[in-house]
Design a protein around this nucleic acid. Sequence first.
DNA 1: CTGACATTGATAGCCATTCTCATTTAGGAG
DNA 2: CTCCTAAATGAGAATGGCTATCAATGTCAG
Lengths: 145, 145
Amino acid sequence: MTGDELDDEIAALLQRADQRYTKGRRALVAALRAAGQPVTILQILDAADGLAQSSVYRNLAALEEAGVVTRVITNDEFARYELAERLTEHHHHLICSMCGDVFDFSLGARTEASLDKALHRVADDAGFTVEAHRLDLVGTCPRCD
Amino acid sequence: MTGDELDDEIAALLQRADQRYTKGRRALVAALRAAGQPVTILQILDAADGLAQSSVYRNLAALEEAGVVTRVITNDEFARYELAERLTEHHHHLICSMCGDVFDFSLGARTEASLDKALHRVADDAGFTVEAHRLDLVGTCPRCD
DNA sequence: CTGACATTGATAGCCATTCTCATTTAGGAG
DNA sequence: CTCCTAAATGAGAATGGCTATCAATGTCAG
C-alpha cells in the first residue's frame, strides 16, 4: 500500500468513526509507519517530538477505536502500538523477554491456513465468535542473548 | 497428576528456588486448581478469603519466579494467573473481549507440532532463543454474545 | 530454648494511564 | 470573511493496579 493509499484508507476509517484526521494524528501514523515495529508511547514521544503526552494517549485510543492502530500486548508494563493489520498485513510477534522489544514475523500461507481452520473449529465448539487470533513467540533476542 | 504428586512437584520447585511452601501459598495453589481457568487477583481474594492482598501479590510473584504459576496476559487491565504448564499441560487461551474472561483450549498434537516446527524455523532465522509460544483466540464468549 | 531469617499483613508509595478543563482549532452556515 | 458550534489540544491532576516498606509473626537449625 502506497503512502497516499494508506492515508486515504485511514481518512475513511476515521470519517466512519466521526473523527478528524488532524495534524497530531498524522504525526502519530507517520511515527508508527517509520518504526516498522510495535513501539511504546515513550518511543513515540522521543521520535516525533512536539507531541503532548496526553494527546498521544488520547489519539492512540481514538485511532484504535477507529481501527487504524492496534494495541500490542506484551510481558512488560508498557503498551505498544502498531498500524492495524487491515492497513498492513497479517503477522505475529517475536517478543524479547529481556528488553521487551517486539518484532514482526509471518508464517507461510499454508501453516496460517491450517492454524486458522483449527482455531475456528475450537471457537465453534466453545460457542465463541472469533475476532482475531494472536500468536506470539517469547524468547531472547540476539542483542540480549 | 494427582493432588499429592502436584504438591510434591510444587514443593520441589519452591525448594529449588529457596522458597517455603507456606499455608498462604498452599491456599493460592488450591484456589488456582479449583478455578480451572486463569483468574484475577480479585477473584482469588473473593474465593479464598483470609488472604491478604499484599501477600497474594507477593506470593504469586514468588510462585511465578519458582515456575509454579504463570501470569496470563490479556486485553484488560487485570493480571490473571494459572498453574504453570509443567504442572498441567500445554494449552492456549480463549479470551472474551467483552467481559475479559479467559478459557483454556488445546490443539491437536499434529497441529501443535507443525506450528511448533514453523515457529522454531522463524526464531532461528531471527536469531531468537525460544522460551515459549503464546496463542490466543480473541472473541466474544457465549454469555456476552 | 534461642537466634537467624523467611514470611506475613497493613499501609504508604509508585507510575503508566486516564481524566479535567480552559484554550485553540477546524468545518459549516449565512 | 465572520460567526458559531463542536471537536481537538495540552498541562496538570487524579486514578488504580501493583509494588515497596517495615514491624510483627512464624519457622527451622543447633
